[in-house]
Nucleic acid binder design. Structure first.
Lengths: 218, 218
DNA sequence: CCGGCGATATGAGTAACGCTCATGTTAAGC
DNA sequence: GCTTAACATGAGCGTTACTCATATCGCCGG
Protein backbone atom coordinates (compact mmCIF):
# COMPACT_ATOMS: atom_id res chain seq x y z
CA UNK A 1 0.00 0.00 0.00
CA UNK A 2 1.32 3.36 0.94
CA UNK A 3 5.02 2.80 0.97
CA UNK A 4 7.57 4.30 3.26
CA UNK A 5 9.32 5.75 0.28
CA UNK A 6 6.32 7.82 -0.74
CA UNK A 7 8.02 11.16 -0.59
CA UNK A 8 10.10 10.59 2.49
CA UNK A 9 13.19 8.95 1.05
CA UNK A 10 15.96 10.58 -0.87
CA UNK A 11 16.50 7.49 -2.94
CA UNK A 12 14.52 4.31 -2.95
CA UNK A 13 16.80 1.38 -2.15
CA UNK A 14 16.90 -0.96 -5.14
CA UNK A 15 19.38 -3.64 -4.24
CA UNK A 16 18.94 -6.15 -1.51
CA UNK A 17 21.48 -4.93 1.01
CA UNK A 18 20.31 -1.34 0.93
CA UNK A 19 16.70 -2.38 1.43
CA UNK A 20 17.70 -4.28 4.55
CA UNK A 21 19.75 -1.35 5.73
CA UNK A 22 16.89 1.10 5.40
CA UNK A 23 14.68 -1.28 7.31
CA UNK A 24 17.28 -1.68 10.05
CA UNK A 25 17.68 2.07 10.36
CA UNK A 26 13.93 2.46 10.82
CA UNK A 27 13.91 -0.28 13.46
CA UNK A 28 16.73 1.31 15.40
CA UNK A 29 15.11 4.70 15.06
CA UNK A 30 11.97 3.34 16.69
CA UNK A 31 13.85 1.79 19.58
CA UNK A 32 15.98 4.83 20.12
CA UNK A 33 12.93 7.07 20.12
CA UNK A 34 11.52 5.06 23.00
CA UNK A 35 14.75 5.46 24.91
CA UNK A 36 15.64 9.09 24.41
CA UNK A 37 12.75 10.82 22.66
CA UNK A 38 12.82 12.91 19.53
CA UNK A 39 15.13 15.60 20.80
CA UNK A 40 17.60 13.10 22.15
CA UNK A 41 17.72 11.09 18.95
CA UNK A 42 20.80 11.63 16.82
CA UNK A 43 21.31 10.45 13.29
CA UNK A 44 24.79 9.27 14.18
CA UNK A 45 23.52 6.95 16.89
CA UNK A 46 20.79 5.53 14.66
CA UNK A 47 23.41 4.81 12.02
CA UNK A 48 25.78 3.31 14.56
CA UNK A 49 23.17 0.93 16.00
CA UNK A 50 22.07 -0.11 12.54
CA UNK A 51 25.74 -0.72 11.67
CA UNK A 52 25.52 1.71 8.78
CA UNK A 53 27.97 4.55 8.13
CA UNK A 54 26.57 8.02 8.49
CA UNK A 55 27.17 8.75 4.85
CA UNK A 56 24.95 5.88 3.84
CA UNK A 57 22.25 7.10 6.17
CA UNK A 58 22.09 10.35 4.26
CA UNK A 59 22.06 8.52 0.96
CA UNK A 60 18.55 7.38 1.74
CA UNK A 61 17.08 9.74 4.32
CA UNK A 62 17.02 13.46 3.56
CA UNK A 63 17.40 14.45 7.20
CA UNK A 64 16.44 13.58 10.75
CA UNK A 65 12.85 14.64 10.22
CA UNK A 66 12.61 12.48 7.13
CA UNK A 67 13.73 9.48 9.10
CA UNK A 68 11.06 9.95 11.74
CA UNK A 69 8.49 10.73 9.10
CA UNK A 70 9.27 7.49 7.34
CA UNK A 71 8.82 5.66 10.62
CA UNK A 72 5.50 7.39 11.23
CA UNK A 73 4.32 6.29 7.81
CA UNK A 74 5.35 2.73 8.46
CA UNK A 75 3.47 2.82 11.76
CA UNK A 76 0.42 4.23 10.03
CA UNK A 77 0.41 1.42 7.51
CA UNK A 78 0.86 -1.16 10.22
CA UNK A 79 -2.05 0.24 12.22
CA UNK A 80 -4.43 0.36 9.30
CA UNK A 81 -3.51 -3.11 8.17
CA UNK A 82 -4.08 -4.60 11.59
CA UNK A 83 -7.32 -2.73 11.97
CA UNK A 84 -8.54 -4.03 8.64
CA UNK A 85 -7.73 -7.57 9.71
CA UNK A 86 -9.58 -7.25 12.99
CA UNK A 87 -12.58 -5.63 11.35
CA UNK A 88 -12.76 -8.62 9.07
CA UNK A 89 -12.32 -11.16 11.84
CA UNK A 90 -14.59 -9.95 14.58
CA UNK A 91 -18.33 -9.56 14.64
CA UNK A 92 -19.31 -5.97 14.12
CA UNK A 93 -22.95 -5.26 14.68
CA UNK A 94 -22.79 -1.52 15.05
CA UNK A 95 -20.57 1.34 14.03
CA UNK A 96 -19.87 2.00 17.71
CA UNK A 97 -18.20 -1.39 17.85
CA UNK A 98 -15.92 -0.29 15.07
CA UNK A 99 -14.99 2.84 16.98
CA UNK A 100 -14.18 0.76 20.04
CA UNK A 101 -12.14 -1.62 17.94
CA UNK A 102 -10.13 1.19 16.38
CA UNK A 103 -9.40 2.76 19.76
CA UNK A 104 -8.48 -0.63 21.17
CA UNK A 105 -6.08 -1.45 18.36
CA UNK A 106 -4.52 1.99 18.59
CA UNK A 107 -3.93 1.56 22.31
CA UNK A 108 -2.56 -1.94 21.78
CA UNK A 109 0.00 -0.69 19.29
CA UNK A 110 1.01 2.15 21.56
CA UNK A 111 1.84 -0.45 24.16
CA UNK A 112 3.72 -2.90 21.99
CA UNK A 113 5.11 -1.35 18.83
CA UNK A 114 8.48 0.35 19.34
CA UNK A 115 8.36 4.04 18.63
CA UNK A 116 4.60 4.10 18.25
CA UNK A 117 4.10 5.89 21.53
CA UNK A 118 6.31 8.68 20.25
CA UNK A 119 5.37 8.90 16.61
CA UNK A 120 1.96 7.57 15.96
CA UNK A 121 0.72 9.10 12.75
CA UNK A 122 1.72 11.92 12.65
CA UNK A 123 2.29 13.87 15.75
CA UNK A 124 5.75 14.75 14.82
CA UNK A 125 6.44 15.62 11.27
CA UNK A 126 4.89 17.26 8.26
CA UNK A 127 5.01 15.68 4.87
CA UNK A 128 6.87 17.47 2.12
CA UNK A 129 4.60 19.40 -0.15
CA UNK A 130 2.11 19.84 2.62
CA UNK A 131 0.02 22.93 3.25
CA UNK A 132 1.78 26.28 3.18
CA UNK A 133 3.46 26.75 6.52
CA UNK A 134 4.45 30.34 6.53
CA UNK A 135 4.70 31.18 10.16
CA UNK A 136 3.76 27.87 11.60
CA UNK A 137 5.81 25.35 13.44
CA UNK A 138 6.94 22.42 11.40
CA UNK A 139 6.43 20.26 14.45
CA UNK A 140 2.78 21.14 14.64
CA UNK A 141 2.04 20.83 10.99
CA UNK A 142 2.07 17.10 10.80
CA UNK A 143 -1.14 15.63 11.97
CA UNK A 144 -3.27 17.02 9.20
CA UNK A 145 -2.05 14.95 6.30
CA UNK A 146 -1.67 11.79 8.30
CA UNK A 147 -4.98 12.08 10.04
CA UNK A 148 -6.69 12.76 6.76
CA UNK A 149 -5.19 9.51 5.49
CA UNK A 150 -6.41 7.77 8.61
CA UNK A 151 -9.86 9.25 8.34
CA UNK A 152 -9.99 8.35 4.69
CA UNK A 153 -9.11 4.73 5.22
CA UNK A 154 -11.27 4.57 8.32
CA UNK A 155 -14.18 5.70 6.23
CA UNK A 156 -13.55 2.89 3.81
CA UNK A 157 -12.97 0.38 6.55
CA UNK A 158 -15.66 1.31 9.01
CA UNK A 159 -18.36 3.39 7.48
CA UNK A 160 -18.63 1.94 4.02
CA UNK A 161 -18.50 -1.46 5.62
CA UNK A 162 -21.60 -0.65 7.58
CA UNK A 163 -23.41 1.11 4.80
CA UNK A 164 -23.66 4.53 6.35
CA UNK A 165 -24.50 7.45 4.11
CA UNK A 166 -21.52 9.43 2.94
CA UNK A 167 -20.96 13.07 2.35
CA UNK A 168 -18.62 15.94 3.12
CA UNK A 169 -20.14 16.38 6.57
CA UNK A 170 -19.24 12.87 7.57
CA UNK A 171 -15.78 13.14 6.07
CA UNK A 172 -15.02 16.19 8.11
CA UNK A 173 -16.48 14.66 11.22
CA UNK A 174 -14.19 11.68 10.86
CA UNK A 175 -11.14 13.88 10.59
CA UNK A 176 -12.22 15.73 13.71
CA UNK A 177 -12.86 12.45 15.51
CA UNK A 178 -9.44 11.07 14.64
CA UNK A 179 -7.76 14.27 15.71
CA UNK A 180 -9.58 14.38 19.04
CA UNK A 181 -9.14 10.68 19.76
CA UNK A 182 -5.44 10.93 19.01
CA UNK A 183 -5.08 13.77 21.50
CA UNK A 184 -7.00 12.06 24.30
CA UNK A 185 -5.15 8.77 23.88
CA UNK A 186 -1.89 10.65 24.04
CA UNK A 187 -3.08 12.20 27.26
CA UNK A 188 -3.93 8.74 28.61
CA UNK A 189 -0.38 7.62 27.94
CA UNK A 190 1.17 10.65 29.53
CA UNK A 191 -0.78 9.98 32.71
CA UNK A 192 -0.12 6.25 32.84
CA UNK A 193 2.62 4.24 31.10
CA UNK A 194 0.13 1.61 29.97
CA UNK A 195 -2.55 4.15 29.14
CA UNK A 196 -4.96 5.32 31.84
CA UNK A 197 -8.04 3.06 31.47
CA UNK A 198 -10.45 5.75 32.59
CA UNK A 199 -9.21 8.18 29.99
CA UNK A 200 -9.30 5.53 27.29
CA UNK A 201 -12.93 4.82 28.17
CA UNK A 202 -13.59 8.53 28.12
CA UNK A 203 -12.08 8.71 24.65
CA UNK A 204 -14.50 6.10 23.38
CA UNK A 205 -17.40 8.03 24.82
CA UNK A 206 -16.20 11.33 23.39
CA UNK A 207 -16.04 9.86 19.89
CA UNK A 208 -19.33 7.99 20.12
CA UNK A 209 -21.26 11.00 21.34
CA UNK A 210 -19.82 13.17 18.65
CA UNK A 211 -20.27 10.78 15.73
CA UNK A 212 -23.81 9.93 16.78
CA UNK A 213 -24.83 13.25 15.24
CA UNK A 214 -23.38 12.29 11.90
CA UNK A 215 -24.31 8.66 11.59
CA UNK A 216 -27.97 7.68 11.58
CA UNK A 217 -29.30 4.92 13.80
CA UNK A 218 -29.63 1.55 12.29
CA UNK B 1 -1.23 35.07 39.18
CA UNK B 2 0.90 32.27 37.97
CA UNK B 3 4.09 34.00 37.06
CA UNK B 4 6.39 33.26 34.17
CA UNK B 5 9.14 32.62 36.63
CA UNK B 6 7.29 29.76 38.31
CA UNK B 7 9.86 27.10 37.67
CA UNK B 8 10.91 28.18 34.22
CA UNK B 9 13.53 30.79 34.95
CA UNK B 10 17.04 30.25 36.14
CA UNK B 11 16.97 33.48 38.06
CA UNK B 12 14.11 35.84 38.62
CA UNK B 13 15.07 39.29 37.39
CA UNK B 14 15.01 41.69 40.31
CA UNK B 15 16.22 44.97 38.94
CA UNK B 16 14.41 47.06 36.41
CA UNK B 17 16.60 46.57 33.37
CA UNK B 18 16.71 42.81 33.65
CA UNK B 19 12.93 42.61 33.99
CA UNK B 20 12.56 44.54 30.76
CA UNK B 21 15.13 42.39 29.08
CA UNK B 22 13.38 39.16 30.02
CA UNK B 23 10.14 40.60 28.72
CA UNK B 24 11.80 41.66 25.48
CA UNK B 25 13.30 38.24 24.99
CA UNK B 26 9.89 36.63 25.41
CA UNK B 27 8.40 39.08 22.92
CA UNK B 28 11.06 38.36 20.33
CA UNK B 29 10.77 34.66 20.98
CA UNK B 30 7.06 34.84 20.15
CA UNK B 31 7.63 36.77 16.94
CA UNK B 32 10.46 34.52 15.85
CA UNK B 33 8.38 31.43 16.50
CA UNK B 34 5.77 32.75 14.08
CA UNK B 35 8.45 33.28 11.48
CA UNK B 36 10.57 30.15 11.66
CA UNK B 37 8.87 27.69 14.02
CA UNK B 38 10.33 25.94 17.00
CA UNK B 39 13.04 24.06 15.16
CA UNK B 40 14.19 27.13 13.32
CA UNK B 41 14.35 29.25 16.45
CA UNK B 42 17.85 29.86 17.80
CA UNK B 43 18.73 31.33 21.13
CA UNK B 44 21.34 33.49 19.48
CA UNK B 45 18.80 35.13 17.19
CA UNK B 46 16.34 35.73 20.02
CA UNK B 47 19.10 37.39 21.99
CA UNK B 48 20.23 39.44 19.01
CA UNK B 49 16.74 40.76 18.28
CA UNK B 50 16.15 41.59 21.90
CA UNK B 51 19.52 43.40 21.92
CA UNK B 52 20.75 41.19 24.72
CA UNK B 53 24.07 39.35 24.74
CA UNK B 54 23.85 35.60 24.62
CA UNK B 55 25.44 35.28 28.03
CA UNK B 56 22.70 37.36 29.57
CA UNK B 57 20.09 35.21 27.90
CA UNK B 58 21.42 32.19 29.75
CA UNK B 59 21.53 34.09 33.02
CA UNK B 60 17.75 33.98 33.06
CA UNK B 61 16.62 31.14 30.85
CA UNK B 62 17.94 27.65 31.55
CA UNK B 63 17.81 26.63 27.90
CA UNK B 64 15.85 26.94 24.68
CA UNK B 65 13.02 24.80 26.01
CA UNK B 66 12.79 26.93 29.12
CA UNK B 67 12.38 30.02 27.00
CA UNK B 68 9.49 28.57 25.03
CA UNK B 69 7.98 27.15 28.17
CA UNK B 70 8.05 30.57 29.78
CA UNK B 71 6.29 31.98 26.74
CA UNK B 72 3.67 29.24 26.88
CA UNK B 73 3.02 30.08 30.52
CA UNK B 74 2.67 33.76 29.72
CA UNK B 75 0.22 32.90 26.97
CA UNK B 76 -1.72 30.70 29.33
CA UNK B 77 -2.06 33.46 31.87
CA UNK B 78 -3.10 35.92 29.21
CA UNK B 79 -5.79 33.58 27.92
CA UNK B 80 -7.25 32.84 31.31
CA UNK B 81 -7.26 36.47 32.32
CA UNK B 82 -9.05 37.54 29.17
CA UNK B 83 -11.52 34.71 29.51
CA UNK B 84 -12.28 35.71 33.08
CA UNK B 85 -12.94 39.27 31.97
CA UNK B 86 -15.29 38.22 29.20
CA UNK B 87 -17.13 35.81 31.45
CA UNK B 88 -17.75 38.69 33.82
CA UNK B 89 -18.79 41.09 31.08
CA UNK B 90 -21.14 39.10 28.92
CA UNK B 91 -24.43 37.54 29.76
CA UNK B 92 -24.07 33.84 30.37
CA UNK B 93 -27.33 31.96 30.66
CA UNK B 94 -26.03 28.46 30.15
CA UNK B 95 -22.81 26.51 30.48
CA UNK B 96 -22.82 25.96 26.74
CA UNK B 97 -22.44 29.69 26.33
CA UNK B 98 -19.35 29.51 28.46
CA UNK B 99 -17.92 26.77 26.26
CA UNK B 100 -18.55 28.87 23.17
CA UNK B 101 -16.97 31.86 24.81
CA UNK B 102 -13.86 29.92 25.74
CA UNK B 103 -13.47 28.53 22.24
CA UNK B 104 -14.04 31.96 20.78
CA UNK B 105 -11.44 33.63 22.96
CA UNK B 106 -8.96 30.87 22.26
CA UNK B 107 -9.42 31.32 18.52
CA UNK B 108 -9.15 35.07 18.82
CA UNK B 109 -5.83 34.80 20.60
CA UNK B 110 -4.52 32.34 18.06
CA UNK B 111 -5.21 34.95 15.43
CA UNK B 112 -3.74 37.95 17.17
CA UNK B 113 -1.22 37.05 19.85
CA UNK B 114 2.29 36.48 18.49
CA UNK B 115 3.53 32.97 19.10
CA UNK B 116 0.18 31.75 20.37
CA UNK B 117 -0.46 29.73 17.24
CA UNK B 118 2.76 27.85 17.89
CA UNK B 119 2.79 27.52 21.66
CA UNK B 120 -0.59 27.76 23.12
CA UNK B 121 -0.52 26.07 26.50
CA UNK B 122 1.37 23.72 26.25
CA UNK B 123 1.82 21.90 23.06
CA UNK B 124 5.49 22.21 23.10
CA UNK B 125 7.22 21.81 26.36
CA UNK B 126 7.03 19.89 29.59
CA UNK B 127 7.40 21.59 32.90
CA UNK B 128 10.31 20.65 35.10
CA UNK B 129 9.41 18.12 37.72
CA UNK B 130 6.67 16.75 35.56
CA UNK B 131 5.64 13.12 35.35
CA UNK B 132 8.37 10.54 34.88
CA UNK B 133 9.29 10.50 31.23
CA UNK B 134 11.28 7.35 30.83
CA UNK B 135 10.97 6.47 27.22
CA UNK B 136 8.66 9.25 26.16
CA UNK B 137 9.31 12.24 24.04
CA UNK B 138 9.80 15.43 25.91
CA UNK B 139 7.96 17.20 23.17
CA UNK B 140 4.85 15.18 23.78
CA UNK B 141 4.91 15.39 27.51
CA UNK B 142 3.82 18.93 27.80
CA UNK B 143 0.14 19.30 27.46
CA UNK B 144 -0.75 17.45 30.60
CA UNK B 145 0.36 19.93 33.20
CA UNK B 146 -0.79 22.95 31.29
CA UNK B 147 -4.12 21.53 30.37
CA UNK B 148 -4.71 20.49 33.93
CA UNK B 149 -4.09 24.09 34.91
CA UNK B 150 -6.50 25.21 32.22
CA UNK B 151 -9.12 22.71 33.24
CA UNK B 152 -8.70 23.70 36.85
CA UNK B 153 -9.18 27.36 36.22
CA UNK B 154 -11.92 26.70 33.72
CA UNK B 155 -13.73 24.80 36.39
CA UNK B 156 -13.50 27.75 38.69
CA UNK B 157 -14.43 30.20 35.99
CA UNK B 158 -17.14 28.32 34.19
CA UNK B 159 -18.60 25.55 36.25
CA UNK B 160 -18.52 26.98 39.72
CA UNK B 161 -19.86 30.18 38.27
CA UNK B 162 -22.89 28.32 37.02
CA UNK B 163 -23.39 26.21 40.09
CA UNK B 164 -22.82 22.81 38.52
CA UNK B 165 -22.11 19.90 40.83
CA UNK B 166 -18.47 19.02 41.20
CA UNK B 167 -16.66 15.75 41.52
CA UNK B 168 -13.75 13.79 40.11
CA UNK B 169 -15.79 12.73 37.09
CA UNK B 170 -16.34 16.29 36.04
CA UNK B 171 -12.73 17.21 36.67
CA UNK B 172 -11.52 14.48 34.39
CA UNK B 173 -14.10 15.33 31.77
CA UNK B 174 -12.87 18.91 31.71
CA UNK B 175 -9.30 17.81 31.17
CA UNK B 176 -10.42 15.60 28.32
CA UNK B 177 -12.49 18.41 26.85
CA UNK B 178 -9.60 20.86 26.94
CA UNK B 179 -7.28 18.33 25.37
CA UNK B 180 -9.69 17.51 22.57
CA UNK B 181 -10.64 21.11 21.90
CA UNK B 182 -6.99 22.10 21.75
CA UNK B 183 -6.34 19.43 19.13
CA UNK B 184 -9.29 20.32 16.94
CA UNK B 185 -8.57 24.04 17.04
CA UNK B 186 -5.00 23.31 16.04
CA UNK B 187 -6.35 21.33 13.13
CA UNK B 188 -8.57 24.25 12.15
CA UNK B 189 -5.51 26.50 12.00
CA UNK B 190 -3.49 24.06 9.98
CA UNK B 191 -6.24 23.94 7.38
CA UNK B 192 -6.85 27.66 7.24
CA UNK B 193 -4.58 30.53 8.35
CA UNK B 194 -7.45 32.26 10.12
CA UNK B 195 -8.89 29.03 11.47
CA UNK B 196 -11.37 27.04 9.40
CA UNK B 197 -14.82 28.20 10.56
CA UNK B 198 -16.45 24.84 9.94
CA UNK B 199 -13.91 23.04 12.07
CA UNK B 200 -14.22 25.63 14.81
CA UNK B 201 -17.99 25.10 14.85
CA UNK B 202 -17.39 21.37 14.91
CA UNK B 203 -15.13 21.84 17.93
CA UNK B 204 -17.89 23.57 19.83
CA UNK B 205 -20.25 20.74 19.05
CA UNK B 206 -17.75 18.10 20.04
CA UNK B 207 -17.27 19.67 23.44
CA UNK B 208 -20.92 20.37 24.06
CA UNK B 209 -22.01 16.84 23.22
CA UNK B 210 -19.37 15.39 25.42
CA UNK B 211 -19.87 17.61 28.44
CA UNK B 212 -23.63 17.22 28.29
CA UNK B 213 -23.12 13.82 29.89
CA UNK B 214 -21.33 15.32 32.84
CA UNK B 215 -23.30 18.47 33.49
CA UNK B 216 -26.96 18.22 34.39
CA UNK B 217 -29.61 20.30 32.64
CA UNK B 218 -30.74 23.39 34.33
C1' DC C 1 33.64 -13.31 -19.92
C1' DC C 2 34.09 -8.51 -20.23
C1' DG C 3 33.35 -3.67 -20.08
C1' DG C 4 30.96 -0.02 -18.46
C1' DC C 5 27.62 2.58 -15.85
C1' DG C 6 24.60 3.62 -12.40
C1' DA C 7 23.80 2.38 -7.65
C1' DT C 8 25.98 2.10 -3.30
C1' DA C 9 29.73 2.88 0.33
C1' DT C 10 32.50 5.71 3.23
C1' DG C 11 34.12 8.89 6.98
C1' DA C 12 36.77 13.08 7.44
C1' DG C 13 35.29 17.54 7.28
C1' DT C 14 32.19 21.99 7.75
C1' DA C 15 28.99 25.21 9.41
C1' DA C 16 26.07 26.12 12.92
C1' DC C 17 24.00 25.16 17.20
C1' DG C 18 23.21 25.19 22.43
C1' DC C 19 25.37 26.45 26.21
C1' DT C 20 29.45 27.63 29.71
C1' DC C 21 32.59 30.27 32.20
C1' DA C 22 36.01 33.46 33.73
C1' DT C 23 36.14 38.03 34.35
C1' DG C 24 34.42 42.59 34.65
C1' DT C 25 30.65 46.07 36.00
C1' DT C 26 26.70 47.93 38.40
C1' DA C 27 23.21 48.63 41.94
C1' DA C 28 21.51 48.03 46.97
C1' DG C 29 22.00 47.78 52.05
C1' DC C 30 24.34 49.31 56.12
C1' DG D 1 32.38 54.12 51.52
C1' DC D 2 32.57 49.51 51.91
C1' DT D 3 30.58 44.96 51.07
C1' DT D 4 27.94 41.83 48.80
C1' DA D 5 25.14 40.05 45.56
C1' DA D 6 23.02 40.77 41.27
C1' DC D 7 23.99 41.56 36.53
C1' DA D 8 26.85 41.85 31.96
C1' DT D 9 29.70 40.00 28.46
C1' DG D 10 31.43 37.35 24.36
C1' DA D 11 35.14 34.17 23.19
C1' DG D 12 35.17 29.51 23.15
C1' DC D 13 33.85 24.37 23.80
C1' DG D 14 31.60 20.22 22.74
C1' DT D 15 28.13 18.38 19.77
C1' DT D 16 25.01 18.18 16.12
C1' DA D 17 23.10 17.70 11.36
C1' DC D 18 24.59 17.16 7.12
C1' DT D 19 28.03 17.26 2.70
C1' DC D 20 31.19 15.72 -0.61
C1' DA D 21 35.05 13.75 -2.96
C1' DT D 22 36.40 9.45 -3.86
C1' DA D 23 36.25 4.51 -4.01
C1' DT D 24 33.78 0.14 -4.74
C1' DC D 25 30.03 -2.87 -6.01
C1' DG D 26 26.34 -5.17 -8.69
C1' DC D 27 24.05 -5.82 -12.94
C1' DC D 28 23.38 -6.33 -17.85
C1' DG D 29 24.25 -6.06 -22.96
C1' DG D 30 27.38 -7.96 -25.94
Amino acid sequence: MTNVSAGTLRRRPAQRRSVERVERMLDECARLLDEVGYDGLTTKEVARRAAVPIGTFYQFFPDKQGLVRALALRNLDAFLDRLAVRLGEEEISDWTDAVDLAVDEFVAMKRTTPGFAIVDFGEIMPFPGGPPMKGTNRLLNAALENNVIVADRLRVLVIDLLGAPRGPGLDRALVVAVEAADAVIKLAFRVHPEGDPGLIAECRRLIRRYLADHIPER
